[in-house]
Design a protein around this nucleic acid. Sequence first.
DNA 1: ATTCTGACA
DNA 2: TGTCAGGA
Length: 128
Amino acid sequence: MKEKELRRSLAVLPMGTVMKLTSLTARQIRYYEAQDLVFPQRSDGNRRMYSLNDVDRLLEIKDYLADGVNVAGIKAIYNQQQRAAQEKKSAESQPLTDDDVRRILQDEFIRQGGLGHPAPGIQQQRPF
DNA sequence: ATTCTGACA
DNA sequence: TGTCAGGA
């Protein structure tokens, strides 16, 4: 169930394809990017490359606009969504944070007789 | 043939 | 937002 999300996030669609998939004009699609509503990757000759997730987001933007929500409003919605997602990852959902794991492994290594040398592979671990 | 940026009769 | 210019 992880392979699928990887594919959906692969930027392989050029402008023309996205235009057909969303019924939006190139002008509009570029404008939404300028407003930081979508972040397509760039490829070879500075060409925008969109993922299926990007297309979904554009479709989403499209009907938010149709419902009378302005660009600022849409931006606010995404900001709060990203905010909610961050909180779920750090506190509630995850019993052990990366920081917790690092500290636990460190303590265990010392208890086994190690001398202050961090266990290989985990000493440079930086949470977040 | 396609897409990109900048600009506005 | 449309559309045209001038490049890549």
